[in-house]
Amino acid sequence: MIPEQELFAPGHNACAGCGPAAIARLILKATGDNIIVVSPTGCLETFSSLYDLSSWEVPWMHPLFENGASVASGVEAALRILGKADIPVIVIGGDGGTYDIGMGALSGMFERGHRITYICYDNEAYMNTGVQRSSATPYAAATTTTPFGRRSIGEDRPKKNLAAIAIAHDVPYVATASLAYPRDLMNKVKKSLTVDGPRFILVHSPCPVGWGFDSALTVEVSRLAVQTGLMPVYEAENGEITKVFKIIPRPVEDFLKVQRRFKHLFTSEEGREQIELIQAAANENITKMGLAKEPGRKVKVDAS
């Protein structure tokens, strides 16, 4: 049963169909109200915390962009010394505050072994400032700083593999999740809170405005990311991948073609090649992580 209690109140200023808003609500349904939340700067923080119009029904703090993990470390240390270590601490931060500017602080939080669940809602660019690329922006995606042009196919680097970086820190619980599978997401959040040590959950969070799709398709797009193998959903405990969400792989085009940020791939000659590269990356995920329900089945790019 999903609890009815709303700890992430309506009336926030998220865009219609916002993935991170839906995710924040589900996270708090999983944690319940005995929780402290720290959110570094980002869309979620901005649309939920106008003075006196806070959406947070739980204790919540927004410090700065790059220090979510270190402020949360201080919160957790304080709870320990105050004899209140039974209150769990989570961070909910975007990809900019996590992959990029908050990376040092996150590494420190992992390395020091704090009992904190760090949840990154990954909408794959700086949406709050108007869709600039981050190191979480996927290959070939157009953003306002990686526009498609005569000399550009969009983002020219592959997405940083942050979950793998967390695993490399010997973080005992690392998981990826998707808005499309809310029970899985909530279970992972709940499970994380029982783990002794740092935990990291990466949640793929579609953005209708930044990715360019109809607001009704937020869940659909996040489902397609998973089903194409571009967003592997898994759990890694103590460095070992222990659970993988199995898919019947669909061609990456199904995911790409519904988004404006990949539109140029379908309207340009070089786009064809790029789609093949993206398909190859998805195939590699599928093989390496064993994502396919029917291993061995090849996914062909629809040439039409």
Binding site: V38, S70, S73, I81, G104
Partner: peptide
């Protein structure tokens, strides 16, 4: 006391910011 040896002064200030906000 809890003594957190951190990755940078930015984090040192951030840690005490968080801990003081929690009541320590």
């Amino acid at each position: 006391a809890e003594y957190l040896k951190v990755d940078a002064e930015f984090s040192a200030a951030s840690v005490v910011f968080g801990s003081a906000a929690t009541g320590a």
